[in-house]
Amino acid sequence: MLTLQLRKLEADKIVKRTIYAEVPPRVEYELTAIGLELRPIINELESWGVKHKNLLGEF
């Protein structure tokens, strides 16, 4: 599931994937310039989560 989400984000140019030819294989993901534009939105989602943490934890 995580791999599918990361591949979709990569296809949408939100993250960049770098593959290293190592053993064991290593892959790194980083936000692209487009992805970095989402920072204010991500920060607001984090604030919302912190604010509602106790309520959300009840489920």
Rank of each mutant, 00 (worst) to 15 (best):
M1I: 06
M1A: 13
L2P: 01
T3A: 14
T3W: 02
T3F: 07
T3R: 15
Q5C: 05
Q5V: 14
L6R: 08
L6H: 02
R7I: 08
K8R: 14
K8P: 00
L9S: 02
A11W: 04
A11G: 06
D12T: 01
D12S: 07
D12Q: 14
K13L: 10
K13Q: 11
I14F: 13
I14A: 05
V15G: 04
V15W: 08
V15E: 10
V15D: 08
K16L: 08
K16N: 08
R17F: 03
R17A: 14
I19F: 01
Y20L: 03
Y20G: 00
A21C: 05
A21F: 09
E22F: 04
E22S: 13
E22L: 06
V23Q: 14
V23M: 09
P24C: 02
P25F: 01
P25Q: 04
R26Y: 15
R26S: 14
R26D: 11
V27W: 02
E28G: 00
E28N: 09
E28D: 09
E28A: 06
E30R: 05
E30V: 03
L31G: 05
L31P: 00
T32F: 03
T32C: 03
A33H: 00
A33D: 14
A33N: 04
I34L: 14
I34A: 15
I34E: 14
G35R: 10
L36H: 12
L36A: 00
L38C: 10
R39D: 09
R39I: 13
P40G: 13
P40D: 09
P40K: 10
I41H: 08
I41M: 10
I41D: 10
I42T: 06
I42Y: 05
I42M: 12
N43H: 05
N43S: 05
E44I: 05
E44W: 06
E44D: 13
L45C: 11
L45P: 00
L45E: 08
E46K: 15
E46W: 15
E46H: 11
E46C: 11
S47N: 14
S47I: 08
W48V: 14
W48C: 08
V50Q: 14
V50Y: 11
V50R: 12
K51F: 02
K51T: 15
K51C: 02
H52L: 08
H52C: 01
K53Q: 14
N54P: 01
L55W: 07
L55C: 00
L55P: 02
L56P: 01
L56R: 11
L56Y: 07
G57Y: 08
G57P: 00
G57M: 11
G57N: 14
E58A: 10
E58H: 02
E58S: 12
E58T: 13
F59Y: 07
F59D: 05
F59C: 03
